[in-house]
């Protein structure tokens, strides 16, 4: 059988892009971005004076457009994957393209769930897969060039950057800093996982659902995890110990919310700070911040996996009463 000789051309494109990035980095010297913990306002006035009547003013911050883009992308992928799978069912062929990819990912996640949760996998899997894919998209979307670098110029209250008009109302932020009359950039899009509102709300959903699944699996017996009075009267000393351990479990459930929220937020915010510091230090040699973006890609995938897996394993643990854990495997 004559093997067809393949000419590896893709690597030359990657090399050319790296060289172009290196050269462009020297021409358009990157400006050290403003490091803001909270999401920046795109417009000063609130879009709702008193949101829902009691939540106070609602501002258009730059994570809201990203949230919309993420949801639209996820829905589009779900739609096309579903259509591709339907077509394959009609033609009895192996699903192609996006249907195949999505099916492979979901199958891998389902097997992971079954390995930990056993017969409760069907109940736990939707939460695990949704959270993981959503966080994965949130983390990877912010690595697209143009994200967090195109936006609205605000007058700086203090030190700011000079600008160079490009025309048509657009301007380029220059590295030179000025004490007065300078500008700072509020990007149109900011990664949603770099907003504590997003990570905290996802953490709340995850921990509340862990309790719900615990109740669904064990019924009211799930409460014995927190208020353990089984041995209270038979062996009072150990019974009291069990009761205290139960209260500690209650505290640990609350600390899960903090750990979920701050782990994801901290890792993704550290990414922004990293790129900002290195871009500010290196200026012309912008190929190195690009390497950090690769590390950001790695961290983004890891953090999505960690958030999803921890949710799933905690849910699996919540379905098991005391001493049932070995019987399950």
């Amino acid at each position: 059988m004559e093997t067809q000789k393949r000419t590896p051309w893709r690597r030359w494109i990657v090399l050319a892009l790296m060289i172009a990035g290196f050269i462009l980095g020297g021409i358009f010297v990157p400006v050290q971005p403003e490091i803001a913990v909270a999401a920046e306002k795109l417009i000063e006035e609130p879009i709702a004076e008193n949101f829902l009547g009691f939540l106070g003013p609602l501002y258009l911050v730059n994570t809201l457009p990203t949230l919309a883009v993420t949801l639209v992308l996820l829905l589009l992928i779900a739609f096309f994957a579903n259509r591709s799978l339907k077509q394959s069912q009609n033609t009895d062929l192996v699903p192609r393209g996006i249907g195949n990819l999505v099916e492979a990912i979901l199958e891998m996640l389902y097997n992971l769930t079954e390995g930990s949760a056993g017969k409760y996998a069907k109940m736990i899997f939707p939460w695990f897969a949704t959270i993981m894919i959503y966080v994965l998209f949130a983390n990877l979307l912010k690595l697209i060039p143009g994200f967090e670098s195109i936006g609205v110029l605000h007058h700086a209250h203090g030190e700011g950057h000079t600008i160079a008009e490009i025309g048509g109302g657009w301007a380029n932020l220059l590295p030179a800093k000025v004490e007065e009359g300078g500008y700072i950039l509020a990007p149109f899009f900011r990664g949603i996982s770099v907003d504590l509102n997003f990570t905290a709300s996802l953490a709340l959903i995850s921990v509340v659902m862990i309790q719900v699944i615990g109740f669904r699996a064990q019924g009211i017996g799930y409460l014995s995890k927190f208020f353990n009075t089984r041995r209270m009267f038979k062996v009072p000393f150990f019974g009291a110990m069990d009761f205290l351990v139960g209260l500690l479990e209650l505290i640990s459930e609350i600390s899960k919310i903090l750990s979920f929220a701050f782990r994801l937020f901290g890792n993704m915010f550290a990414g922004i700070v990293l790129v900002a510091i290195v871009a500010g230090l290196l200026g012309k040699f912008s190929i190195l911040p690009a390497m950090i973006m690769m590390f950001e890609l790695f961290v983004g995938v890891i953090q999505a996996f960690v958030f999803g897996m921890l949710t799933m394993v905690f849910m699996a643990q919540a379905t098991q009463g005391h001493g049932e854990e070995h019987a399950e495997h």
Binding site: S116, S259, R263, G266, N267, A270, V273, L274, I277, V299, I302, Q303, V306, F307, M309, L310, V313, F314, A316, Q317, Q320, E325, H326, H329
Partner: peptide, 26 residues
């Protein structure tokens, strides 16, 4: 016991990058 071990390793993996990178930068 096994899920506890899983939780430990996933939690460690999740925080390692943050801890090491923050320490090295600052």
């Amino acid at each position: 016991m096994i899920s506890t071990l899983l939780i430990v390793v996933i939690g460690q993996v999740g925080c390692l990058t943050l801890a090491v990178i923050t320490a090295s930068v600052f």
